[in-house]
Amino acid sequence: MSTVTTTYREAIREAIREALRRDPRVFLMGEDVGAYGGCFAVSKGLLDEFGPERIRDTPLSESAFVGAGIGAALGGMRPIVEIMTVNFSLLALDQILNNAATLLHMSGGQFNVPLVIRMTTGGGRQLAAQHSHSLEGWYAHIPGLRVLAPATLEDARGMLWSALEDPDPVLIFEHALLYNQAGTLPADAGAVDIRRARVRRPGRDVSLITYGGSLPKTLEAAGRLAAEGIDAEVIDLRSLRPLDDATILASVAATRRAVIVDEGWRSGSLAAEISARIMENAFYELDAPVARVCSAEVPMPYARHLEQAALPQADTVIRVARGLVRGDG
């Protein structure tokens, strides 16, 4: 099978391109997605290829253009709305929560909202406290939404089409540090399942449960743990809402130990939710308390060393996992 060398960014662009070609109802809109080629250069070249009707620049007004996207979806279109970062999505939170997520319910099932919203998330690039937070856990709190977090080239390439096929709103969170991730994909790569978590690395001793931008760090940690004789299993959640409980619980039942790696803040986090589900459903399988590696509960610092200290790191994951398996660390 022939493969292509690509990056996470190009894989998403290819996914948007495929969607635009396959379905005339699909269009992309957002801040600087057209002439500028996207703030993270994801949509570069698409304006030339598909024209301003389908690659639409919007004003800096998240509430307005997300609302427009909801309207277009209600009107029969399949909009892809890009929000620059999750930080700014809060301006559109009312549209997302009160309209996109609830209209099906409020209309008694008459109006579904087949909208896809893409946005970047996460820190690590010295963009300071207003551009670096990981708030996807908040969205994972909201019934009526599906929340995805592609962490691999395959998912970057394949999740968008599956999301567009969903009759209800889907949020896709792209960690900014992943855009330059390079690798190969099959030439015919396409849609992927968006319901299940995946075991990215099988292991017997401890389950490292993570998603999105923390997956590469967690895989690195697992590799280094293997060198000291600890066989870690790495689970990529992929879907943050709904959570794939079955995969999580099966893994924890086998390893009996769990570390959740989540770039969100610890308090009230997605990690807290996963921990609670493990307690509720796998308590008697556990051989150690569930542990979490989350971001420090501070506004994300600008200074590089402080930012790195605030974010989950492979070293922390290793120390915590070692503590659970060996009782030291």
Binding site: R256, F283, Y284, E285, L286, D287, A288, P289, G323, L324, R326, G327
Partner: peptide
């Protein structure tokens, strides 16, 4: 740990007689 308790109960082992190596 809960798993240790389960296993010990099933095997008829009294946990109070063992020494822990965990956290």
């Amino acid at each position: 740990s809960p798993a240790a308790r389960q296993r010990a109960a099933a095997a008829g082992i009294d946990l109070a007689t063992l020494r822990g190596s965990g956290p």
